[in-house]
Every structure is written in C-alpha cells, then in structure tokens.
Design a protein around this nucleic acid. Structure first.
Lengths: 253, 253
DNA sequence: CGGCGACTTGATAAACTTCAAAATGCGTGG
DNA sequence: CCACGCATTTTGAAGTTTATCAAGTCGCCG
C-alpha cells in the first residue's frame, strides 16, 4: 500500500476542515477541544496539490508558514557548499515541515514533492498568536518541535555509528512504524523515494543501498519488488537495529 | 582561553539574576523587556556547580526542566541498544539543554558535565505558562527550538556527506564561532572534551581525529598543544568546510 | 516500440577503522 | 615536590567497509 493512497487524498477538498480530517489524531489538532480546532481551522489554508518534483519552499526563502502534509510525501534537502544535495528528511501525512525556518525567518532547506502531494499551509504568525490563546495548542507545538529534535538526534546516531545494514534496516523500520501509525500495513508498503534518495539520506552510495536490499532479500528479511517493500522477518530486522531505547520507544531513525 | 573561565563563573552567585548575567544577550532573556526578565528570573533556579563527570539528567528520567549553561561545558549522549555512547551535542554557556525531553515527558539523552559547570534550571511548566503571558518569550522559545532543529540538520549533513578532514575542520570552526559569540577568541581556545569524545561526536575513530589534527598542524592550519587549539589559517579552514550556506549563515556543524 | 533514467551487479580503490604499542600527560598519595 | 599508575594521545601497520567506476539490465513514459 502506498503512502500516496491516503484515504484523505480524494475525499479532502480544498474546503475541508481539521474536524473531518482523518489525520487530526496525529496532526496538530490532537488533544484540542472542538472550539479550539475551529479556531485553528480558520487560519489554515488548504493548498492545491503539488505535482511530483514541485517545490513547496526554497532554501533561503523568507519563512512564513509551516506546512502539514495531508497526502503524498515530501523530501527536504540542503544544498551544500559544494553544490550537492543532502536530504535531511522525508515527510508523511500529518507531519509538519518548515519548523527549522522560524529561527532565521528563512527556510534553511528546500522542500520538494516526491509524488502528488497536498499540504495545509499554516501561517506561523497566526499559529503563534493562536497558541497564546490555546495553551494545549502551544504545548502541542512545543511537543512537535521537541519530537523533531529527538528524532534528528536518533538520526545522528544512525549516521555516526551504524553500518550500511543497520542504516537500511533502521530506515525501513522507521517507515514501517510511521505507516502503521497512519493505519497502513507495517509490513508492506511502497517507497516514494528512489534508491538514490535513500542513499543520500542515509549517507550511503546508491549501489550500497541496492546491494544491502538485495542481500536482505536473499536472507529472507524482506521482499523487494521495485519500490514495493514487504518486511518478511520483522523480528530479525528489529534485532539488527536494536529495538528499543531507554525511553522504551522504538528506535526511530 | 578556556570556556570554563567565563567571567560569570565567579561573579555569579546562586542568588544572581538574569539582569546582571553576562549571558542575557545570548540566552532566553534576549529581546525581553526588563519587567519580563524579572518574571522569567523568578522561575529560574540557580543550581550548585556540577563537578566534572556529574550527571545533570539521565536518559529515561522524567522531564521537568530545561537548563541553561552558565559556565563550563556539558555533553549530551544517547546509550545505544548495543550499549555504546553516542554523543549528540556539546553545550556552551547560554545554550539550552533538555528541549528534546518535552515530547515524551522524559529525557531521551543523558547530560554530563565535561568540567566544572553551572546551570540555571528552568522548570518547563512554569516557562510554558510564562510564555503565554509574554509573547516575545514564547517567540524566543520557538526560535531556540527551531535553531536547534536546523543546527541538527547541519550536523546530519556533516555526518552523512563529509570526510574526516571536513568533519574535524567543521567541528573546530563551529566551536570557534560559538566562542567568538561569547566574547572569547575565535582563534585560540581550549577543548573541554577529549579526542575520544570529539571522534564519537563526529562519527570517527579517536585515532582518525588525532591523525587529522596532527596533519592540520603540519599543514599550518592549526596549532595543537594538548587541548589548546589555535587556528592559524582561518581562511583555509573555512575553505575546507565550505563557508556559507544559502541563508548566508556560516555552516554550523 | 524506443529511449532514457533508475536500478543492479561486479571489480577495483580509497578512506577509515581496528589492532598494537609507545609516548605523553595528569592526578594522587607518599 | 616527586614518583607512580592510569588514562589519553599519538603513531604505525594491517584489515574492512564502503565508495567509485564501469557495464549491463530493467522498467516506465512518451
């Protein structure tokens, strides 16, 4: 099942609301009272879908809004001094992108659609104002940012300490967890990104990603059919990456 | 000049206040009105100094507070499933540590003093409440967290794309920038951390860090005397890491 | 059906790690 | 204040992992 076939993809028109969005349990509205969701709803602008390859915002562009992915997938990347692209994240439905732009009033990364993708635009100044009136919204925002910080730190552990096998396994399990949380299969899904993008993200060459996946398949850990991935031996995969940290949380990449 | 010899180290007693703290221009009070600084001041608890090796908080421990480093240096690290320590950051005076604990109400990392270190404890629930009353404080908090996210993303770029030389050069330049911002020399400073800790942080073996530094010295980029580092050829070092990103910001690690 | 990009596979090379050992620095107790 | 012992750092040699280069295959879109 692909991440792009989210139930909301066609049912959610530009006029749709947080209240009847299937993602509200994961997105910002979580733990908000109905009337508060209404207020939040009023500052959110539903955007027309991005086509594959479309840019949501550019590195260096003035920061105005954060965006919640509604359907599809985004990648964010940084263009390094030497001109290469370094992917810093992939974003699934309900996830917030653009938070790193607050500090400098400019996005330090570019966000690009990996497939047809819809987003909710949330003008940050409005969100900030609203968060003063709604403590639970403010708390939710702090939580989302805090979560991002700790996820990124796990990613540093991955990049700094893990070998190719562990990196790829972590990546697949992380996707699995995110899909599961969104009501999709945890063991069977379609990658929205290319092998090259996976390698870029994990600090590996394309060829290495390909070889590792092939070997995983040979060892009956996963089944690979192009972009379709099926995890055959979840336990073994988890063992490979080390399952839980001291917080009892599955080690997200 | 060592980071531990901050002017505030001896002048700031446990009863000291944000108002007369030399770090207020860098820390949370920045851009706050006097009366607001007073309010912030009242929720902050100055703690007795940590000795080298003391733990500020443990991975897994319930989250209560964020901490601002007043003097000295902290490291944060994650104990991986395989039991090794992965350092996720070093913290200098004025920097906030513990923000990643908000999400799960538990610190996902351990914070440990690298030398004698004093911190201000800021109970987060109080800070959060106060931020509702003081919009500029709330904005400041968002900025600090946003900044952390974008710094961590730069760190991912470093870990994923850079070679040993670039990693070490980036690390030294990042420290240089942070010292300079705090009024110390940008070209001459003392490392609070061991080579092993540097290597751990950068995803390199100790031996590699040592070799790179020795080579940098041979090539007259830096001068090394134990933990004392002097940057001789700043321009060349900057060239090595690629000086500025598209936001015009020096590429922090 | 053709062409082009994405993916796979193999061979070689480079970068870094690991292992080993010596040198240096540092804190502690006599 | 010095000497001892341990930890850190440096240096060398060998070994691995992964990147790079090259070529071929697959699959998709026009």
């Amino acid at each position: 099942m692909s991440i792009s076939s989210a139930p909301s993809r066609f049912s959610s028109k530009l006029t749709s609301q947080c209240q009847n969005c299937s993602l509200s349990a994961l997105c910002l509205p979580i733990a908000l009272a109905d009337e508060d969701i209404n207020k939040l709803d009023q500052i959110i602008e539903r955007k027309r879908p991005l086509k594959k390859g479309d840019i949501l915002f550019h590195q260096g562009q003035t920061f105005d809004s954060v965006f919640a992915v509604r359907s599809g997938t985004l990648k964010t990347f940084n263009i390094t001094a030497s001109g290469e692209e370094q992917i810093t994240g992939f974003y699934c439905p309900s996830e917030l992108v653009g938070l790193s732009g607050i500090d400098n009033n400019a996005y330090p990364i570019t966000a690009k659609a990996l497939e047809t993708t819809t987003v909710c635009e949330i003008p940050f100044s409005h969100l900030e104002n609203l968060s003063s009136q709604i403590p639970s919204l403010k708390h939710q925002l702090f939580r989302v940012m805090s979560r991002k910080i700790s996820d990124d730190q796990q990613m540093m552990v991955l990049l700094g300490k893990k070998n190719a096998d562990e990196k790829v396994a972590s990546f697949l399990l992380n996707l699995s967890t995110r899909f599961k949380k969104r009501g999709y299969s945890a063991t069977s899904f379609r990658l929205a990104m290319s092998r090259g993008e996976v390698g870029n993200y994990l600090g590996l060459a394309v060829e290495t990603v390909s070889r590792v996946m092939t070997r995983f398949q040979k060892n009956a850990l996963i089944e690979v059919d192009g972009k379709e991935i099926t995890i055959i031996n979840l336990a073994q995969m988890q063992k490979l990456v080390g399952i839980a940290d001291d917080c009892g949380r599955i080690a997200d990449i």
